[in-house]
Design a binder for these strands. Structure first.
Lengths: 154, 154
DNA sequence: TATGAAAGAGTGGGGCT
DNA sequence: AGCCCCACTCTTTCATA
């Protein structure tokens, strides 16, 4: 386990970048009252230590023609490790899949998808999920709205 | 509905930035065989049109001291619009909440949280969720692993 | 470790095709 | 639209404390 050694400045950097990932190093340095080089070193260190994992763009799925989002709950018939991992891989590799949660409890996977319409949703369930023999059943919930929370620094 | 008018080049830009959000404009232009200014204009247009919503950093919650993630399913007693929205707002504003799905179906909300330990998880459920009278019940599932899918362009 | 300054790299606007 | 050029800004390295 990475025992993160984070001081106040590191946390401020993380908070600032969480709010605006596209902040320039210069602006970030000014905002925190650091020299630009110092700030750059800090940020690089946070990346190197894996505390900042990566930077991602968020696309508007609806604008791209995939206005329907859903969570598909997947329950398995049995839970041998190998089969579970194989299914996990298959789910992640399925087109239109945004994220896959492998969970403990009533369900085994929660699959978040964005699709063109209800037909495409059905096709994913039938052709990419229930085709696997290890899948006992699925239950689909339409996503009305997805909002981000305050995050881990909140 | 934003009827997005996207040509081949736009899609290539989106694919490239989905893979590496921190690609410089210069590198992106070279990769696609465009002039740098042309490429910059394209990217700006995609942002202005909202197709690229924003850029975000992903933090390692575990490294920050929040190694336990869970999905809390929330079911409501009744569904008057006003109360539902108020609860949505409250959930999003709760510390340690990463995302909140408002869904249609068996559950009403799926709340994705990252916490320090089981005690903190219990505290969220008891102090931030079941305190709301409109909440009939919750069911918590531990997240073993969360993986990204191929996304909307997959 | 943090800093300032200078070299190097990247960005974005104007005029043109 | 797209492209080239150029002035500008930002990043990064390095010597120094």
């Amino acid at each position: 386990m990475t025992k993160a050694q984070l001081d106040e400045v590191d946390l401020e950097i993380l908070a600032a970048l969480s709010a605006r990932a596209d902040l320039t190093n210069k602006a970030l340095a000014q905002q925190l009252g650091l020299a630009e080089s110092t700030c750059a070193h800090r940020v690089r260190s946070l990346r190197d230590r894996g505390i900042i994992r990566d930077t991602r763009v968020r696309l508007d799925a609806a604008a791209l023609g995939y206005p329907l989002e859903a969570i598909i709950k997947v329950r398995l018939a049995n839970h041998t490790g190998e089969k579970v991992n194989a299914l996990f891989d298959a789910l992640v590799a399925t087109p239109q899949v945004l994220q896959v949660f492998h969970v403990a409890g009533v369900d085994d996977f929660l699959v978040h998808v964005a699709v063109r319409d209800a037909v495409a949703l059905r096709d994913i369930v039938l052709e990419h999920i229930t085709v696997h023999p290890v899948v006992r059943g699925t239950e689909t919930q339409l996503v009305f709205e997805l909002r981000d929370g305050r995050g881990v620094l909140g």
